[in-house]
């Protein structure tokens, strides 16, 4: 089922933002929509978007490849992206990350054994005054968690687990 069929309202809204003769501009919002739908950007979604915007599949793929917030494979339901950039690192982000890895028993870039959360180190998220912090990318979008501690984080993960169960 194509995006246009599944989300007629959203697609219409998105296309309305840009001049019709430049509808290619809608590629990024449409890819977000596709990613929300499938958890990642599938090959079929790329084809679908390409057709909608009259560009080639390769054009779309090269957009997906350029931007880090699009995933072209399914790793996990959630992505916990900890900022370890300079300002956060000056406030203990690296240490925080280390502890987190230790408790989850995985390395940066790896996914928890239950396949729920992938832990990633990312560059500055514009929350430098609230380190340690991370963003949680999930099915229903993306949220910041600031001034975090190890315990608060582990609780959060536990909550995600429970929610995932039912």
């Amino acid at each position: 089922m194509s995006l246009a069929e599944k989300y007629p309202k959203e697609v219409k809204q998105i296309l309305a933002k840009y001049p019709p003769e430049h509808k290619r501009a809608a590629v990024m919002p449409l890819l977000y929509l596709a990613q929300r739908n499938d958890g990642y950007v599938t090959k079929d979604a790329m084809k679908d978007v390409a057709q909608m915007l009259e560009i080639t599949d390769t054009d779309v793929a090269s957009i997906v490849g350029f931007y880090t917030l699009y995933h072209d494979e399914h790793k996990s339901k959630y992505y916990m992206q900890v900022c370890t950039d300079l300002p956060c690192a000056l406030r203990g982000a690296d240490q925080f990350m280390e502890n987190l890895c230790e408790h989850l028993g995985i390395q940066v870039g790896e996914t928890t054994p239950d396949g729920l959360v992938t832990l990633e180190a990312v560059t500055c998220l514009a929350a430098c005054d609230k380190a340690p912090m991370f963003q949680l990318q999930g099915p229903d979008g993306l949220e910041y968690h600031e001034d975090m501690t190890l315990d608060k984080t582990l609780e959060l993960i536990a909550a995600l687990k429970r929610e995932d169960k039912q």
Binding site: K17, H22, R24, M28, L31, L53, I55, Y67, Y70
Partner: peptide
């Protein structure tokens, strides 16, 4: 219009490319 994770898109001409769907 939302970017998708690229610092360079803060540079104005890159931002325009991105806004054009490139």
């Amino acid at each position: 219009h939302l970017g998708a994770g690229a610092y360079i898109c803060g540079e104005e001409s890159a931002m325009l490319e991105s806004l054009e769907g490139k």
